[in-house]
Design a protein around this nucleic acid. Structure first.
Lengths: 149, 149
DNA sequence: TTCCTTGCAAAGTATTTGCAAGATT
DNA sequence: AATCTTGCAAATACTTTGCAAGGAA
């Protein structure tokens, strides 16, 4: 994992100190496709640096989010817990089946563009940084049974 | 508030028992424009029926959501806590300023339609029941300062 | 040397649950 | 009468925080 050089320059430029823990957390997220929960980041980070604590992971996730190096996501299956991914990750959305919990990822750049364009006309809206869309319903397998309910 | 007759028939038809507490919670939500947190529902409900408990409010919110009488929302300002509104409420979305916390509500039916249409082509997706979109960025007032950061 | 960051444990917030008593069908 | 609901308090899940020790600048 240490073969993945991560961008700590930005962190430094923003006045944050570059510590081993912060580097590790950033490495873990950069090396993982998709998104991780704080707990998952913690599990993977402690394999690299066993002395990292969960509290530090949480604090680091907040710092990295502030610095714009990672993005915090709220994915439909469980809104209670946050998920994190690199800021460079391409936008994707989640459809979740209310019956079986299955999650399908999808993209829809045209709709996003329409959303963003529409927002430009809304008074009070300045710069748009992130859009999070969660769709809920029934998957193909569950839709038939769900209809009876 | 009791002048608002609420639809308990659906509840009954689905095999749920119609209790004073459930009627109260439904009335509270139906009488409130916008969305309420569980805590807010609790506060308003106990003014009507002082013996209702917070646990019952939570259980009732889940029942009513299952029954399709209300909708659960996860709104950007605090994803940690759920918000509820009547199922009839028209879809609207939230833009939140990351700097000052200001929230702007907006609608974009065309974009939603495009989203839904796009989802029809995605394998695994059956019936779509709900879409929740949260947008984050900087409001007009905060955008200039934020640019320097 | 200054002051930011960490680890630990404790606290906080939102929500769920076990169980006995009570209400609905 | 049978079964679902409620209230209470305790439990759970995720995240934050106070404080003293440690580390980056």
């Amino acid at each position: 994992m240490s073969e993945h050089p991560v961008n700590t320059v930005l962190l430094h430029e923003m006045g944050f100190r570059v510590t081993a823990q912060r580097r590790t957390v950033l490495e873990v997220i950069a090396a993982s496709p998709g998104h991780l929960t704080a707990e998952q980041v913690y599990e993977r980070a402690r394999k690299v640096n066993p002395h990292i604590s969960l509290a530090t992971v949480y604090r680091t996730l907040n710092v990295l989010t502030e610095a714009g190096l990672i993005k915090q996501r709220h994915i439909s299956p469980d809104h209670a817990r946050s998920h994190f991914e690199t800021a460079e990750a391409q936008d994707h959305f989640h459809f979740r089946c209310l019956n079986c919990g299955r999650v399908v990822e999808f993209r829809n750049d045209a709709a996003v563009r329409l959303f963003v364009d529409g927002l430009r006309g809304v008074p009070g809206v300045g710069r748009i940084l992130d859009i999070c869309t969660c769709v809920e319903g029934y998957c193909e397998a569950c839709a038939p049974q769900a209809a009876t309910r």
